[in-house]
Design a binder for these strands. Structure first.
Lengths: 153, 153
DNA sequence: CATGAACAATTCAACTGTTTAACTATATTT
DNA sequence: AAATATAGTTAAACAGTTGAATTGTTCATG
């Protein structure tokens, strides 16, 4: 690729990724409503998918310090959406799971987000959107690898 | 498209967009360093591109209330990176511009971010990345339109 | 087996970004 | 001239974040 094209692509990527990220956050917030923040919903999503997980695991997945996770989890425990339970064999570890009302709220909200995404995805041709998501996934893997390499240095 | 495929695509999209957004934020923060937050850099980027703009314009571009903009701009003015100047013909309006050191810091940091993006983009085939960015841009336009429709309702 | 290192999680202080409501100052409408 | 609208700021309250210190637990090794 020649330099000029690369520069153009970089500009376009930086620009479009900023816009889409911003707008997506806003649209998701509209689906979620006032019971939860976006970050709190993402937290419920992760735990729902994992069924059971630890603060350390969340800190790694969300790329933040463990103390940030403690703060978010505290708020979700206060709302009765998450349960904390110590591991009996290693009492340093605390397992997090969704409570029944946490599961209910998550599933209700996630359904609305899925409908939003569906309404967008279905406006594309099948080939275009599958190709897009495939490249997006490649990008994701690439970023994971970059992190590992940095840790290796 | 059949329902099963759509469901699969939604799942994959929700999953991958979360991961990429998170990781990209982290990587950008590494490029920016400790002089600025990511949001502050994005603010400088917008003003740099516009050359001159108002709080209201920023509030719309960033999808937040004007008071959130005031807070961020205050911090950037304190750091000497942005200048405020009242419009002489309509004294309600305040124009924001980058100071010399604001311009310097922005350009230095943006260069690092561009290198980061370049290092990623150039790992893809030309057709794949251009197709990806084109679809991404379509998506962006679609989201803009959705907002207008909502306002119209 | 005792002690020190390692580890999981939490607490706390300080900060950034956000919303909402109230407010100031200015401009426009009628 | 008075009412209304607009641009921006302020203040209180909250969510999310970092970084350092702390608590409680486990593990290694001398």
């Amino acid at each position: 690729m020649d330099k000029k094209l690369i520069q153009e692509l970089i500009d376009r990527y930086v620009n479009v990724s900023f816009k889409v990220t911003k707008k997506a956050e806003t649209l998701i917030k509209e689906q979620i409503g006032n019971d939860l923040t976006n970050d709190q919903h993402y937290m419920l999503r992760y735990i729902h998918h994992a069924e059971k997980c630890t603060s350390s695991e969340l800190a790694e997945a969300f790329d933040v310090n463990k103390s940030a996770i403690t703060a978010i989890i505290n708020r979700l425990v206060e709302k009765g959406l998450i349960d904390r339970k110590r591991d009996e064999t290693d009492r340093r570890v605390v397992y997090l799971t969704l409570s029944q009302s946490g599961t209910d709220l998550f599933e209700k909200t996630e359904k609305r987000i899925h409908k939003l995404v569906e309404s967008i995805i279905t406006k594309f041709e099948r080939e275009e959107i599958t190709g897009f998501i495939e490249t997006y996934e490649k990008l994701s893997e690439m970023l994971q690898k970059m992190e590992k390499e940095q840790l290796g240095e």
